[in-house]
């Protein structure tokens, strides 16, 4: 366990905790969404940090002729899959955020508040079927 070399992962886990508790416990819908974004981005940070190896580069081969002749030395490059996963994850996370925001807008238009507890109370009072 070396805390000095793993500081990105530690930061990611701390951010995950912050986002997680905000999403679960905060009463304000907007802050919940912010918490969700922090949580998801913390995971992507963790994945990106784990996927990077110091001193290697992205697997983009510039010397095509040489590569065709001698083959590619894979030890020079990092695995591109974690970066690909991060991109996919970001897309998913953005669409979820959009849906959450649109839900929040509809809730606000109806109840004129962002507090989920207040909204629940108002909704109970409405007493529709």
């Amino acid at each position: 366990m070396d805390f000095l070399t793993n500081y990105v992962e530690i930061a990611a886990m701390a951010l995950f905790g912050i986002g997680f508790t905000t999403l679960l416990l905060h009463r304000n819908m907007i802050k919940k969404i912010i918490g969700f974004s922090i949580m998801d981005n913390a995971i992507f940070l963790f994945l990106a940090a784990k996927g990077f190896i110091e001193g290697k580069t992205a697997p983009i081969v510039t010397d095509v002729a040489g590569a065709l002749e001698n083959g590619v030395d894979t030890s020079l490059y990092i695995n591109p899959i974690p970066a690909g996963l991060v991109l996919t994850g970001i897309v998913v996370s953005v669409s979820v955020t959009a849906v959450m925001l649109s839900l929040t807008i509809r809730l606000y238009r109806r109840y004129h508040t962002l507090d989920i507890d207040e909204i629940t109370a108002l909704c109970r009072k409405e007493g529709e079927e």
Binding site: F16, G19, F20, L23, L24, M29, K32, F36, M39, D40, I43, F46, G89, V96, V99, M100, L103, T104, R106, L107, R110, Y111, I116, I119, T120, L122, C123, E126, E128
Partner: peptide, 24 residues
């Protein structure tokens, strides 16, 4: 309906917590 909106919001919040843990 008001109720379904609130239900959907609650559903999303719990499910996002779940999928966050799953993704991690």
């Amino acid at each position: 309906r008001g109720r379904t909106l609130v239900a959907a919001a609650k559903y999303m919040i719990m499910n996002l917590v779940g999928s966050g843990l799953f993704l991690l």
